[in-house]
């Protein structure tokens, strides 16, 4: 079945998420919540001595869209600096997902991106 929203890539990331793990040591950590659908995410980032992302992990509960987006954004930022992460735009996030996101699902799609961005701004 070819679904416009639930593409194989999205469903695959939902079933087999990337970077879904708990980091033993990390530079920064943030919990975030999307009350509309009960999504709850904790993100952890570890920077190396050069200020680049050495490792990143996320845990929590969420819908297929939010979970796929979390996998994509966490993979994207590996090796990037804080400034490079902050420079990732909303459009970049949505184009990584590559699916039409309705107004109602925007919070799901941007949950990880938003959390990561505010983490970086708080550093």
């Amino acid at each position: 079945m070819d679904d416009i929203l639930y593409k194989d890539m999205i469903l695959d990331l939902y079933k087999h998420p990337l970077n879904r793990k708990n980091l033993e040591s990390f530079t920064t950590e943030k919990k975030s919540h999307n009350p509309t659908c009960g999504d709850l995410v904790t993100m952890q980032v570890l920077f190396d001595d050069d200020g680049k992302v050495k490792d990143i992990g996320h845990q929590g509960e969420g819908c297929a869209i939010s979970q796929a987006a979390l996998s994509l954004i966490t993979d994207k930022v590996k090796g990037l600096t804080k400034e490079e992460i902050v420079a990732i735009s909303e459009e970049d996030m949505l184009s990584m997902l590559g699916i039409p996101i309705s107004h109602a699902r925007m919070k799901c799609a941007l949950l990880g991106w938003n959390t990561l961005k505010s983490m970086m701004n708080e550093l």
Partner: peptide, 21 residues
Amino acid sequence: IHTHDIAEILNRHNVAIRVGS
């Protein structure tokens, strides 16, 4: 299946339900 995904697919069939807490 997360409840939000259930609601999304049902909506395509004009089925209105509420999901979440």
